[in-house]
């Protein structure tokens, strides 16, 4: 008897793995994005232990050296190793992206699902909040929040989350709304589920995968947003290694020929954003049970 329960779970797991393998083999780009993602995660987790130099240690003798066997990405004006700084910065940028996306997923996703499912006043309130946020140019809003609340990592995370709130709330609302009258919701009522149970156990699992895809896509935007804030001096402060600041610091050297100062952190930023966007497409195929056979 219990074998069935176990078989049930195993069946679910192996099917998912098999499906993931299929999606990747069918679409090599997704496989590439996953490999890249893994690399980013590894860099974030172990980067500080692996890099050849201390990212904060300056060595004026070595200042503004072009990329070489010693300094793969070259050095900046204080002689800090750019390769080490780019790798170490992964952790902070990745953390900001993940934290803000998880935060907005919880806020926007839940508010949107509730708005779509309950309708009425809940819907109106969530809708107006989203409209208000959308009324501002988003980057300016993020700037305003960080400027007003203080220049900390928590506030960057919060600002990035708030800026993305309308997107999540609207997607979740639309998806919950079409399922509100679905047959399986009525069936769940007949099975003795309260509204809250229906919301969390019937509707949410159906909206979740769509939001997961969205999470991957906004991760890229979140990194850009955080880097953008740092770039204009409203985010992480020097000398902390962070891609945005590094690009800002390196920008002035582009003209004088020390291109590597901005090129490598900028490239890391671009690859990360690119990877998250590709990942979103792959995830969409993977989490949709209807695409599984």
């Amino acid at each position: 008897m219990t074998d069935i329960a176990i078989a049930r779970r195993e069946g679910g797991m192996t099917a998912l793995v098999r499906h993931a393998r299929y999606v990747i083999s069918e679409n090599p780009v997704t496989g590439f994005a996953f490999a890249l993602f893994l690399l980013i995660v590894l860099a974030a987790a172990f980067g500080p232990h692996l890099v050849p130099y201390d990212p904060l240690a300056s060595d004026t003798a070595e200042a503004l050296k072009a990329p070489s066997a010693h300094h793969w990405f070259g050095t900046d004006k204080y002689g800090r190793d750019l390769f080490s700084r780019v790798v170490v910065a992964t952790r902070l940028d990745f953390f900001i992206a993940v934290a803000s996306v998880v935060l907005v997923f919880l806020m926007g996703g839940l508010a949107g699902v509730a708005a779509g499912f309950f309708g009425g006043w809940t819907d109106r309130i969530v809708g107006r909040i989203a409209d208000t946020i959308m009324a501002f140019p988003l980057f300016v809003l993020a700037m305003g929040i960080v400027a007003a609340m203080g220049n900390t990592v928590q506030n960057i995370v919060l600002a990035t989350a708030i800026v993305n709130f309308p997107l999540y709330a609207r997607i979740a609302r639309a998806e919950a709304n079409v399922r509100r009258e679905a047959g399986f919701v009525e069936a769940a009522r007949l099975s003795g589920n309260s509204d809250w149970r229906i919301l969390t156990f019937q509707i949410l699992p159906n909206v979740f995968p769509i939001l997961v895809v969205q999470m991957s896509l906004t991760m890229g935007y979140a990194i850009l947003n955080a880097a953008g804030l740092s770039f204009i001096g409203l985010g992480v402060r020097p000398p902390t290694p962070e891609w945005g600041i590094m690009v800002a610091e390196g920008a002035s050297y582009m003209i004088s020929g020390e291109w590597w100062n901005a090129f490598f952190p900028g490239g890391a930023l671009m690859i990360a954003v690119f990877c998250f966007n590709l990942l979103g497409d792959g995830l969409r195929d993977m989490v949709d049970p209807r695409k599984r056979t």
């Binding site: 049930r8 679910g12 679905a182 047959g183 399986f184 009525e186 069936a187 769940a188 019937q202 699992p205 159906n206 049970p289 209807r290």
Partner: peptide
Amino acid sequence: GESINPRFT
């Protein structure tokens, strides 16, 4: 088809 939650076995 429509009355069974697509995420439920």
